[in-house]
Design a protein around this nucleic acid. Structure first.
Length: 556
RNA sequence: GUCCCAGUAGCUCAGUUGGAUAGAGCAACGGCCUUCUAAGCCGUGGGUCACAGGUUCGAAUCCUGCCUGGGACACCA
């Protein structure tokens, strides 16, 4: 438990004791103590609504209850220097801030591990994300999914879960046949022959490029081969090269995966058939119109779904069921699927399938990534992979930069629409908050380079109580919040709290910086204490930036 | 028609478990570099929380209805 948590828990306990001591309610009837952090500093460090909650039990006016409670409160044990009753019956607590200075040595000692907690209790979670078909380059929407999934994994691990990032390669289905045909067409065109891409083919420039590379390498020799051999060649060549491009894009974006799981391998190991047979054996399927259906409607889906089409081939759904079954069999406690909004209709279906297999559907958590709208020159850019007009992830990285893009995607709740103004992001204007946060880090780094005279090997020898100014206390409090911000964001899968925290911390740092001089030869003890504070802030900034994979620059 | 997301300052968005006078950035306006990085700081103005009911000590937040915008609803993936 962190120092800040200890203080909070202790305060809760003391409030409960006071309620009992005052005879307001018997111990077993005391409601859970709710402590909130008031928005207005004038309302103290913590506030409780206990007096309002007790109106029914104690049968007294809330303000009267509050007065009685305060009379029986032990300030010393609760680390409280002042208590006020306000409004309809809020009790405001002002902390004795002496405890805060303990944070500095704790943070400096923890280093990159500051904020690490065990709140996830080692729960094993598989996070599947991106999983784009190898039929072209990654585009803007995939970039958002990549940023969200990767940050989620980093966050979960920091909070004491064991998160494993995984990418499902759709290298077995229909779309790969389309890829083969599209690549073949572009190849023939590159040779100057008549050919036209089918309506449902892939029209992207990446395929054109791939084809011209083939011509350079092989000339027209592939076209001389029999048709089925040609298609097999184009299929394998396409998947291999497009996947390596995808892997490079993701790596450059700061995203890494533990496992790249091939759909085709599910067939080869007989897992698709095994899952199918299990569903049949359990009586969860039936035949109709020459196709095999899964009874998903009974588990909350809109309608039953086809597993095996009337032509004998599988739908996309079937291997995906076996994939999810395999995930559970590998021992994960929870599965998180990060999916694009265009797949949200797919969720009840997959949950139903999990239930049909005998798993708890609540163990499958789906994080929906809402659409990204790109704005350029004030106009919305229409995106479509099929027509090849999408903005690619590579372009995003080249134009905007990885740091800004990662920060931008982490900044908003993943399940809301995102308007991405490309011009603004490119312009490097200070509207982009990533610079603000990085600047705070660079400022501290620059100071610390000149701080040799104030370095102390023994932190315990410093008089940290000198850090008693308002802005110093603000900074210390903010530093103390970090571990609970992480634990809470991880539990709620709410990554957007991390950039918000970083921005806040940076803001307090800038404010302090402008008001006070850190390196002051005329006051060595204070300067030493402030140098230690700066180190703690820098460490915390770095830990937070690591979570969203934003680079922490020594200078800007 | 059913489902998902959104509607809060001129713009982009926060808003914790329901809590006190609804916040931040940008834009606008006024100050601050002889001093550790001005990509910064300090200050001012700016609101029918889409709308209508309900729940209660208290609602931007929860419930119902309704309007508007975006998306999804295949024997596609």
């Amino acid at each position: 438990m962190t120092i800040a948590q200890q203080v909070k828990e202790q305060l809760k306990e003391e409030i409960k004791q006071a309620v009992v001591a005052a005879g307001l309610a018997p111990a077993e009837d005391v409601p859970d103590v709710v402590l909130e952090t008031p928005k207005d500093k004038a309302h103290g460090d913590f506030a409780t609504n206990m007096a309002m909650q007790l109106t029914r039990i104690a049968r007294m006016a809330p303000r009267k209850i509050a007065e009685t409670l305060v009379d029986h409160f032990d300030k010393e044990k609760g680390h409280i220097r002042k208590i006020e009753i306000a409004g309809p019956g809020f009790i405001n607590f002002f902390l004795d801030n002496r405890y805060l200075t303990d944070l500095i040595p704790a943070i400096i000692e923890a280093g990159d591990n500051y904020g690490q907690s065990q709140s996830g209790a080692g729960k094993k979670i598989l996070v599947e994300f991106v999983s784009a078909n190898p039929t072209g380059s990654l585009h803007l929407g995939h970039a958002r999914g990549a940023a969200v999934g990767d940050t989620l994994c980093r966050l979960l691990n920091k909070a004491g879960y064991q998160a494993s990032p995984e990418y499902y390669i759709n290298d077995g289905g229909n779309q790969i046949s389309n890829l083969a045909i599209s690549l073949q067409t572009r190849y023939l065109q590159a040779l100057g022959r008549e050919a036209e891409i089918p309506e449902n083919g892939y029209h992207g420039q990446d395929i054109v490029k791939l084809a011209s590379g083939l011509v350079e390498k092989y000339g027209d020799t592939i076209a001389e081969k029999p048709e089925d051999e040609q298609l097999r060649f184009f299929r394998n060549y396409g998947v291999e090269h497009l996947m390596s491009g995808i892997k490079k894009d993701l790596a450059d974006f700061g995203v890494s995966f533990d496992v790249w799981y091939s759909e085709r391998s599910l067939y080869e190991t007989g897992k698709v058939e095994a899952a199918l047979n299990l569903l049949k054996d359990k009586g969860e399927t039936y035949e109709k119109d020459n196709a095999l259906w899964l009874k998903t409607e009974q588990y909350g889906d809109d309608k039953d779904r086809v597993l095996v089409k009337s032509d004998g081939s599988y739908t996309y759904f079937t291997p995906d069921i076996s994939y999810h079954k395999d995930k559970f069999e590998r021992g994960f406690d929870e599965l998180i699927d990060v999916l694009g909004a265009d797949h949200h209709g797919y969720v009840p279906r997959m949950k139903a399938a999990m239930q049909a297999l005998g798993y708890n559907p609540d163990q499958l958590i789906v994080q929906i990534i809402q659409l990204v709208n790109l704005f350029k020159d004030g106009e919305k850019v229409k995106m479509s992979k099929r027509t090849g007009k999408a903005v690619t992830m590579r372009e995003l990285m080249d134009d905007v930069g990885v740091d800004a893009a990662r920060y931008f995607f982490a900044m908003r709740s993943s399940d809301t629409h995102l308007d991405f103004d490309l011009d603004l992001a490119i312009s490097h204007s200070n509207e982009n908050p990533v610079y603000y946060v990085q600047y705070a880090y660079a400022r501290i780094s620059s100071m610390l380079k000149r701080a040799n005279d104030f370095e102390t090997a023994d932190l315990a020898a410093l008089d940290l109580t000198l850090l008693s100014g308002e802005k110093e206390i603000d900074l210390l409090k903010k530093l103390g919040e970090f571990p609970s911000v992480i634990a809470e964001s991880a539990e709620k899968l709410a990554i957007q709290h991390i950039p918000a925290y970083l921005f806040d911390l940076a803001s307090k740092l800038h404010s302090f910086y402008n008001a006070e001089k850190v390196l002051d030869e005329t006051n060595v003890p204070l300067s030493q204490a402030r140098v230690a504070l700066m180190k703690a802030v820098r460490t915390t900034l770095k830990c937070g930036m690591d979570l969203i994979a934003v680079h922490a620059p020594e200078k800007m």
